[in-house]
């Protein structure tokens, strides 16, 4: 078991995510398809960052690699000061549990748990007892105080995504990855979700990394990298500075 002994806060300018010459390909029948090539960038702690590009540009694959959900063919990923290549699967899971939050396009709630139970899963994984109070506070914050005992199938899409947002922030993550968070929502609901994310980002100083094809959303973030055919074609600055 790898125990990390890093203590102390990062400086505001410290990089929470460092990607260096990342490369990833997949086997497709007899051919090898390169999905990502020579990706290098960094994300400063506490900031907002977006990855944009058309469908098939490699955005979701890049997100998976950044979050430690997958391993690159070459290159390095340093997340929260830890080189992910030095960790095994359980090690990466632990790192995610302690430091990372997720919001997915299709919500990815556990269908057999209630809203409250879904929210407190990351805390219970840490062995924290009496996590229900924290969970209820979070659900109240996202406006779902009355729905804590409802199952995902009993909630609308927007409500499910709000539960997912509450879950993503329950372990007070250092960094939150959001993959097309408004992809399955109508415009008005999507707007509310984005606002929620940015508010919590400001409140908790959680670094926000958003994968999106929505340029309006991307423009709200501080930094934007544009992907095309697996390569970074441009790096831009957004409205949030």
């Amino acid at each position: 078991m790898l125990r990390l002994q890093i203590s102390g806060k990062f400086s505001k300018m410290a990089k929470i995510l460092n990607i260096t010459q990342l490369r990833k390909s997949y086997d497709s029948g007899t051919k090898k398809i390169t999905v990502l090539e020579d990706i290098t960038f960094g994300v400063e702690s506490g900031t907002t960052f977006s990855i944009v590009g058309p469908s098939g540009s490699g955005k979701t694959t890049l997100l998976g690699l950044c979050a430690g959900l997958d391993k690159p063919d070459s290159g390095s990923v340093e997340l929260c000061g830890v080189d992910l290549a030095s960790l095994n699967e359980d090690g990466r899971a632990r790192l995610r549990n302690l430091n990372v939050g997720f919001v997915f396009q299709d919500f990815q709630l556990l269908p057999t748990l209630t809203a409250l139970e879904n929210v407190i899963v990351p805390l219970e994984l840490q062995g924290i007892k009496n996590a229900s109070k924290t969970g209820m506070d979070l659900l109240e914050k996202v406006g779902l105080k009355e729905r804590i005992h409802h199952y995902p199938s009993q909630l609308s899409g927007g409500e499910q995504q709000r539960v997912a947002v509450a879950r993503a922030f329950s372990n007070q993550p250092s960094i939150l990855f959001a993959d097309e968070p408004t992809g399955n929502l109508d415009a008005a609901t999507g707007e509310k979700i984005i606002q929620l994310l940015f508010d919590l980002n400001k409140e908790q100083k959680t670094t926000l990394v958003i994968v999106t094809h929505d340029m309006e959303l991307a423009a709200k973030t501080r930094s934007i990298i544009r992907l095309k055919s697996g390569k970074i074609v441009s790096t831009e600055t957004g409205a949030a500075v």
């Binding site: 102390g8 990062f10 000061g81 632990r94 549990n97 994984l125 840490q126 250092s174």
Partner: peptide
Amino acid sequence: MIKTTSRRARFLWLLKMA
């Protein structure tokens, strides 16, 4: 602050999840 250690979820949690 980066958290670097955690307590493992105990067996009771597994039962609860099950």
